[in-house]
């Protein structure tokens, strides 16, 4: 047992060794029932299907009241760009196969369809690890295909090697109808060198989302943080990266941001990627 800083200094408290022993004895004494994996997989798939159907139903109802132009904001349009939205909506079955982009936004494309293989195609990728060290960065999301666009404001000052930089991330509604939902409060900012990821944020443990309601043309700004540090594929640790990375060599790099947007509670988040902006390290 490692030392504990929270001792209540009460001499009558149970001895920690006794406590540990009692717990271990108790846990070992009972013959536990093994987990039924098949039931877990079946149950969780069914639950995901139910959630998704609820989202589809709600979205389709709303979509029925909107003009066709508003449908262009549909999530489905974003799904066309697998490279930019791979992480966010990879959990959903492909939609509108063969469609050519914005024109495919129909009510049933607003939310994904259920596929026979649903539950097996759920890629576990988040905004922080959409870009992986040494790998090419995800291309920017086409602003014409989504409800929101994301742009970065390039830092005016160079960032010292190894230091943390702060950038503004602007999320704008480029469409003609109000966009409502929530965005993760901390955009994931990636540092790249000639299109190759040299730093990305570590896996965020807590995902704090901010509600947004953007009228056409309206925008909000979030603060994004990045480190002028260099990572390689060897530094990847299951979505996280090593904390003690070496500083980036002075020079010119690019920044891009990934914003996680959730259109409705329970809906699958989608990732919107900004174009790159230059940043100087030195």
């Amino acid at each position: 047992m490692s030392p504990d800083p929270m001792s209540p200094d009460d001499p009558m408290s149970p001895d920690p060794h006794d406590l540990s022993e009692a717990l271990a004895h108790e846990a070992d004494a009972a013959a536990q029932r093994p987990v039924d994996l098949d039931a877990v997989l079946r149950g969780s798939r069914a639950r995901r299907v139910r959630r998704r159907r609820a989202v589809v139903g709600a979205t389709a109802s709303v979509a029925g009241l909107l003009v066709v132009g508003a449908l262009a904001f549909g999530v489905g349009a974003l799904t066309q760009d697998a490279a930019t939205t791979a992480g966010s909506i990879a959990e959903d079955a492909p939609v509108s196969e063969g469609a050519d982009g914005a024109g495919s936004a129909e009510p049933d494309a607003v939310a994904p369809r259920d596929g026979e293989q649903f539950g097996d195609d759920l890629l576990v990728v988040g905004p922080d690890s959409l870009n992986r060290c040494d790998a090419p960065i995800a291309p920017a999301t086409d602003a014409a295909t989504g409800p929101i666009s994301v742009v970065l404001v390039a830092p005016a000052e160079p960032v010292s090697p190894g230091a943390e930089g702060v950038v503004l991330v602007r999320i704008a509604n480029e469409g003609t109808t109000t966009v409502e939902g929530s965005v993760r409060s901390a955009p994931a900012v990636t540092v790249s060198d000639s299109g190759k990821t040299v730093w990305h944020p570590s896996l965020a443990v807590d995902e704090d989302f901010t509600p947004v309601r953007l009228a056409p043309g309206e925008q909000i700004e979030l603060e994004g943080r990045f480190a002028a540090a260099a990572c390689t594929a060897a530094d990847e640790q299951g979505g996280a990266i090593r904390a003690d990375l070496p500083p980036l060599a002075p020079g010119a790099y690019e920044l891009s941001a990934v914003v996680s947007f959730v259109a409705a509670p329970g809906a699958a988040p989608m990732l919107v990627v900004s174009p790159t902006v230059p940043v100087t390290v030195g």
Binding site: L41, S44, R48, E91, V125, G126, D128, E207, A268
Partner: peptide, 8 residues
């Protein structure tokens, strides 16, 4: 846990 969409 696995019936709710989650990142990472």
């Amino acid at each position: 846990t696995f019936g709710t969409p989650r990142f990472q």
